[in-house]
Amino acid sequence: MSPIPPPTSAMQPVLRALRLPQFGWGSKIAALVLAVIVVLTLLAQWIAPHDPLTMNPLARLKGPIEGHPLGTDNFGRDIFSRVLIGGQLSLIIGIATAVVSVLIGLVIGMVAGFFRTADAIIMRMMDALMAIPSILLAIALVALNGPSVGSVIAAITIPEIPRVVRLVRAVVLAAREEPYVEAAIALGTSMPKILVRHLVPNTLAPLIVQGTYILASAILTEAILSFLGAGVSTETPTWGNIMAEGRMFFRIKPELILYPGLALSLCILSINLLGDAARDMLDPRLKKRAG
């Protein structure tokens, strides 16, 4: 009989994923960039050199000048301060969307994966929901419910749910065929217990990965909504709103779009890279981007 290795701690795959040294240098840089962005935006109130809403008609559309490292916009507001503050709402909306859509999708996906009768109906509804282009659906929802933060979160969340449902359902369907689940049935374990103890943990790894992708795509969608004039009210500085306002002055001062665009892109890029790394780590079989 071959020798048995020593016991190791619980939650093998998750622990393995959390051990950062296993990440490549790309993901380490991504983690660092994301950390810097998050810290800067969280501390924006204290770091920002100016109030992002204070206008200064005497210093409109100025290049980098004393006290305004990135220059000023068409109302003479400090671009650097606005970009810093603008990240706050983008991140909040992104995180809220990711959490809410994953939780709702998890529940619906579980039901679809486990109850055959509900499955057909739920999945047709998800098909229909996925057929509606997410940006247009979000636009309509915001147009109807008004430009509040809550309605923007709802508008971005709803189109993301079908993807989570499909993922969870697929994992549950695959897992319930596993012999260890059949063995649990033979051991007299009740269905709800099998669902919670055997099947839900299987969805954890793919959901972490999917959650990061949703986070990235939600931040992106928020920016697009704001850019199209269907986001949170235009007085609030978000990355999308800053860029939307910059459109008019793009030829004179492209920085109005490029700086917030750069911040936004770096943020999404690092989240996507971390998502890829997490996917490779947690489950090598999950090679394809779901949805």
Partner: peptide, 14 residues
């Protein structure tokens, strides 16, 4: 009770 064929999949890996 039952014992299945595939020893790799008959125990919950977690």
């Amino acid at each position: 009770q039952v014992v299945f064929q595939d020893p790799m999949r008959s125990l919950n890996p977690r």
